[in-house]
Nucleic acid binder design. Structure first.
Length: 309
DNA sequence: TTCCAGGGGTAGA
DNA sequence: TCTACCCATGGA
């Protein structure tokens, strides 16, 4: 990754230059933040009035409260309290995490080109739609996906908030080690995780004892099919979760079939009639490797039009 | 009470 | 490979 320092002054004016992170062409900060529900999950906090994403983060073992803004050709993460840059020694780690959070290493040009050929999807280019907001680490995203299964969105938000409060340090999302300090019963009782506590506990302890190797499991040299199978070996991750994790890698070959997908396709294309998953999925076959994003863009626009986002 | 929400794991056919 | 059942939680 390229490192650079920007000469752009902070909002305080007299504060020295801050480190900015360059973004790909046509990157849209706000659209990426609002791409799906992740910006509503702790430790993210989005200020719509300021168009700023706040997030506590541990860098080099030290806690920082980040204030992340976008615009122009860069993302600007600074310390929330002072507006100054994160100390130089932490910039490589910060860049790595920001790159994952905003999918800066994902090439969206092919999807945009395909979307131009569909009257219902031409808007995605103008909106800068395509990148999904992710957690700072794969562990964070796996935990969050587990908390979305078989429950309501409000319960998901509360589960994640409680995990951060109970296990995390200084408001940051906990590491596997921090989660593994607690028993599955502790997590279930105090974070109200239900049966999901066992999966999240198994994930954290597996990473710590070495039986789960997230780097190997997420090895990008695998084909998408191999990666899908690989993600499914994680505790609490089935077809829905694996498809979601692939999307966070920028791979959209698999649609995460859940109650929301079924509701959307049933209402939009089948006049509310019940149809099989296979029939629903067939509708998106023509999108090839962009199936999930094609579906998600349709749902995203429905959310936006109904002011859910 | 019963159902079900951005499902997953397992046993049995 | 497919189906049925169970799994905590909490709102409708």
């Amino acid at each position: 990754m390229v490192r650079q320092r920007s000469a752009k002054p902070s909002s305080a004016g007299s504060i020295p230059a801050v480190a900015s992170i360059p973004v790909p062409p046509a990157f849209n900060f706000e659209s990426t933040v609002l791409s799906h529900g992740w910006y509503l999950l702790a430790p993210f906090r989005w200020s719509n009035a300021e168009k700023i994403l706040y997030r506590p983060e541990i860098l080099g073992g030290e806690a920082f409260h980040l204030k992340i803004s976008g615009g122009g050709q860069a993302i600007l993460p600074v310390l929330a309290q002072t507006g100054v840059a994160v100390p130089e020694k932490h910039l490589p780690e910060l860049r790595k995490k920001i790159t994952r959070m905003f999918q800066l290493d994902v090439d969206m040009s092919e999807f945009v080109a395909v979307a131009r050929t569909s009257d219902d999807h031409v808007w995605v280019e103008r909106a800068g739609f395509g990148r999904l907001l992710c957690g700072a680490t794969l562990f964070e995203d796996v935990v969050k996906i587990i908390t979305t299964t078989n429950t309501t969105w409000n319960q998901t938000k509360r589960m994640v908030q409680r995990i951060v409060e109970k296990c995390g340090r200084d408001g940051a999302f906990p590491t596997p080690k921090e989660v593994s300090h607690f028993t599955a019963d502790d997590l279930q009782r105090d974070c109200r995780l239900g049966y999901r506590a066992r999966s999240i506990h198994a994930l954290a302890t597996g990473i710590i004892d070495g039986s789960i190797d997230l780097d190997a499991i997420s090895d990008p040299s695998q084909t998408t099919e191999e990666l899908f199978k690989s993600y499914r070996t994680l505790p609490g991750i089935g077809p829905y979760g694996a498809a979601h994790l692939l999307a966070m890698d920028g791979r959209h070959d698999f649609i995460a079939v859940d109650s929301e997908f079924r509701r959307f396709v049933r209402d939009r294309y089948h006049k509310g009639r019940r149809v099989s998953d296979k029939t629903m999925l067939r509708r998106y076959d023509k999108w090839g490797k962009w199936k999930y994003l094609a579906y998600w863009s349709e749902l995203w626009r429905e959310y936006r039009d109904s002011a859910v986002l």
